[in-house]
Simulated assay, not measured.
Amino acid sequence: MTSAHEPSDVDRPKASVLDRARWWAADYGYALRRQLAILSPPWSLGRRRRPPRAWRRDSSALPEVVLVPGVYEHWTFLRPLGDALAKAGHRVRVVHGLGINRRPIAATAAYLGEQLTTLPVHDAGRVLVAHSKGGLVGKHLLISSGTAHEAAAEAAAGGDPAEAAADAAPALGLLGMVTVCTPFHGVRLAGLFPDPSIRAFLPGDETIVSLGRDTSVNGRIVSVFGPFDPHIPEGSALDGATNVLVPAPGHFRVLKAPATHQAVVEGVAHLAQR
């Protein structure tokens, strides 16, 4: 990994109010351009909604990557990350049907898991690569899929007649997850918004609290973030995870930074080596 720290060791560079204001404006400008890119020009809408052909080429020695976008984000929002991962040799998948990811975290994780069970598991396994809320969805899936398999294994070991039910929880082949700017500790600023899909990020939300208490999968998570995130003042460092600070400020604009791409590619490689 390029740079790994425990949360207490992450030193965020000091920035002036002017720098933060400039970063904030640039961040929203980038997000707006990414959102508009899928709609313009109208005649290319179908092409823009289809994953690039290059994403389907892969090396059997490298895990495939499944992109999980954040709230109010179509999968195309993560196209820069997908392009970088494909260039590194990974097969890149998207799960259709998530829309703009406004459904509850648990429901979205269940849907994601169901869709992955319909796809053949890659020989080298899978790694989730997620942005923002996508990381919470991914952690929920890592926890729930692990719990299901533990229960199936215990039933089989005990000679339970329901051993055949193990097939009801097929292996997803998940090695772990690389996240970018995920609010693992919640976001107090979410209280400023009436939208339930945003207020779900409040630090006291039941799902946020539950995910925070369960540290069983933290060691299989690589959390990437920049020195300034206007959406997550609490930060994205996670105890027990591999935390990587990249020199790219912002919550959205960080997705296009070469340093972020390198950290994500290295993060996937790190999980594959475990």
Rank of each mutant, 00 (worst) to 15 (best):
Val224Asn: 03
Ala152Cys: 10
Val224Pro: 00
Pro161Lys: 07
Ile208Arg: 01
Gly204Phe: 06
Gly235Met: 11
Leu172Ala: 02
Leu175Ile: 04
Ile208Val: 13
Val222Pro: 02
Gly212Thr: 01
Gly226Ile: 00
Pro194Asn: 07
Phe228Arg: 00
Phe184Asp: 11
Val244Ala: 02
Phe225Trp: 04
Ala166Leu: 14
Leu238Cys: 13
Ala248Glu: 04
Ala153His: 15
Ser216Asn: 14
His251Met: 06
Val217Phe: 01
Ser216Lys: 09
Val180Phe: 02
Pro196Asp: 08
Leu172Val: 04
Ser197Lys: 14
Thr179Gly: 08
Ala237Asp: 02
Val209Asn: 05
Thr207Trp: 06
Val187Phe: 02
Thr182Arg: 06
Thr207Leu: 08
Ala157Met: 11
Ala169Cys: 13
Ala248Leu: 06
Gly212Lys: 00
Pro170Ser: 06
Thr215Ala: 11
Leu175Gly: 00
Gly240Phe: 15
Gly176Met: 03
Gly159Ile: 10
Cys181Tyr: 11
Pro249Cys: 05
Ala200Asp: 08
Asn218Gly: 05
Gly250Pro: 01
Val209Asp: 09
Glu206Val: 11
Asp229Ser: 04
Leu202Tyr: 05
Gly212Tyr: 01
Val222Ala: 00
Pro203His: 14
Gly204Tyr: 07
Ser197Trp: 07
Thr215Tyr: 05
Ile221Tyr: 12
Val246Gly: 04
Pro194Tyr: 06
Gly159His: 14
Glu150Cys: 07
Ser216Met: 15
Thr179Tyr: 06
Leu192Lys: 10
Leu175Cys: 05
Pro230Ala: 00
Pro233Leu: 03
Leu211Val: 06
Ala156Asn: 03
Pro196Ser: 10
Phe225Leu: 07
Ile221Asp: 06
Ser236Arg: 14
Thr182His: 04
Glu154Met: 11
Glu206Trp: 11
Ser223Tyr: 09
Ala152Gln: 09
Leu238Phe: 11
Val180Glu: 00
Pro196Gln: 08
Met177Gln: 13
Pro233Arg: 00
Ala248Val: 05
Ser197Met: 09
Phe201Trp: 01
Val180Lys: 03
Ala200Leu: 07
Gly226Cys: 01
Gly212Cys: 00
Gly158Ser: 12
Pro249Phe: 07
Thr215Pro: 05
Ala190Met: 01
Leu189Arg: 12
Ala164Gln: 15
Gly159Phe: 09
Ala237Cys: 02
Leu192Met: 12
Met177Pro: 10
Leu189Trp: 10
Ala237Tyr: 02
Asp239Thr: 11
Asn243Arg: 08
Val222Leu: 00
Val224Thr: 02
Asn243Gly: 09
Cys181Ile: 08
Asp239Arg: 15
His251Phe: 02
Pro230Asp: 01
Pro203Trp: 05
Leu202Trp: 09
Gly212Met: 01
Val246Ile: 05
